[in-house]
Computed example of a mutant assay.
Amino acid sequence: MRRAISRLKPLWLLPVLLGVTLGVLGVLGAVPDFVRSVPSMVLLVVIALGALLSGVHPKADEHEPHVMASPVRGRWAALNTPGQQLPSHGSRFLGQYAAVDILQPATAATPAKVRKAWRGSRPQEYPSFGAPVYAMAPGVVTRTWSRSRDHRARNTWQALLYMMTLEGALRTLGGQRAIIGNHVIVHHDDGTAAVYAHLRTGSVVVGVGQRVDAGDPLGEVGNTGNTSEPHLHVHLMDRPNPNAAAGLKMTWANIARPGEIEPSLAEIAKEPAENAVLSMPRNGEIFEA
């Protein structure tokens, strides 16, 4: 039942969009007369039902982490990771129960996480931007998108506020592309599927129906979709449709963990929760692939 409801997520989001639209029109005093003729209780019930159903997500049975190859090479740091807690991103939305975000360690030239400026930093200023992304397991590409633009970082106070309020809400209502930006989805031979998200504009080098092996290049790290700075978001699912998928735990076989913490992420480097996937890096932890 959960999966059937979740599969129709775009439909359930329509009443939520209606509620947001009516709220804005109400503030502007521009609600159409035909809408005013509908009993307010009916509108509230429809909006509330849509919000309730859009929050229903599939759950996978308890399982051991699936062993994958790392999607990157070199030195990286993890955040919003299942090595810290589950759900790693605070939600099961779009199958991202055990998703992980990774970025390359900061250099002296890397922009600050938050700075005083009118505009956010350009994505080209970050070391992760343009780094190659590789397939974690053999399978077939089922979906790609590479036309979203790389936007500036959300590293000013006003940009962060915008991202956490209006932008976040609009992207959620905008669907998968608005959230994950440029992406590749690979359906693996074992039945699992992986999402590689926030890729650089025009960088995707595979097409739908193409077969890939572990280690084959897919694209490059970018700053598209719901992102604050260039990084790779990757997660594993039990099927290739994120709207109908349950998130799965994974671990990377070809990484070393030297025990270092990325200084710019030190404030989120805490002891893992009891349900964490301990074979994955925790928040702020550097790993080498």
Score class of each variant (00 low, 15 high):
231 H>C: 04
77 A>T: 09
4 A>R: 13
5 I>S: 01
127 P>S: 03
209 G>W: 02
244 A>D: 14
247 G>W: 11
193 A>D: 09
124 Q>V: 07
153 A>K: 06
249 K>S: 13
49 L>A: 15
269 A>L: 12
163 M>Q: 14
147 R>S: 14
232 L>G: 03
113 K>Q: 09
83 G>M: 04
156 T>Y: 09
189 D>F: 02
33 D>V: 10
272 P>S: 07
84 Q>C: 04
19 G>H: 06
16 V>G: 00
133 V>I: 14
83 G>W: 01
44 L>Q: 08
237 M>K: 11
165 T>M: 08
145 W>G: 00
212 V>N: 01
254 N>P: 06
229 E>R: 08
1 M>C: 10
20 V>K: 09
176 Q>K: 04
191 G>N: 04
165 T>I: 08
3 R>L: 07
163 M>P: 00
98 A>Q: 04
220 E>W: 00
113 K>V: 04
258 P>D: 08
52 L>F: 12
287 F>A: 07
289 A>Q: 03
16 V>W: 00
22 L>R: 09
9 K>P: 00
117 A>K: 04
97 Y>K: 04
228 S>C: 10
73 R>Q: 12
255 I>N: 05
216 D>C: 00
182 N>Y: 05
252 W>S: 11
48 A>D: 03
281 P>C: 08
278 L>Q: 13
93 F>Y: 10
269 A>S: 15
157 W>R: 14
100 V>S: 13
81 T>F: 10
52 L>M: 10
55 G>F: 07
289 A>Y: 14
253 A>L: 09
17 L>G: 15
262 E>Y: 00
189 D>L: 10
124 Q>D: 14
226 N>S: 13
153 A>S: 13
237 M>G: 13
250 M>F: 15
123 P>I: 06
144 T>P: 05
24 V>T: 06
187 H>D: 13
211 R>I: 00
168 G>C: 12
141 V>Q: 03
94 L>F: 10
276 A>L: 08
62 E>M: 02
73 R>M: 01
27 V>I: 15
82 P>I: 09
186 V>G: 07
132 P>C: 02
123 P>K: 06
113 K>M: 12
118 W>K: 14
106 A>K: 05
67 V>D: 11
203 S>N: 03
78 A>L: 13
13 L>G: 08
253 A>D: 11
184 V>Q: 06
276 A>D: 02
150 D>L: 04
162 Y>T: 05
68 M>L: 15
178 A>E: 08
159 A>E: 15
179 I>V: 15
108 A>V: 11
250 M>W: 15
278 L>S: 14
87 P>R: 11
253 A>N: 12
156 T>L: 09
90 G>N: 08
209 G>R: 07
26 G>M: 04
235 H>L: 03
174 G>V: 10
131 A>V: 08
6 S>P: 12
56 V>H: 11
289 A>N: 07
158 Q>T: 15
275 N>W: 05
171 R>W: 05
170 L>G: 11
235 H>D: 02
99 A>E: 03
261 I>C: 14
207 G>A: 15
116 K>S: 13
2 R>S: 14
26 G>P: 04
173 L>E: 03
120 G>R: 02
276 A>T: 04
137 A>N: 02
110 T>Y: 11
117 A>P: 05
134 Y>V: 12
181 G>A: 01
223 N>H: 12
60 A>G: 08
46 V>G: 01
246 A>G: 15
49 L>M: 12
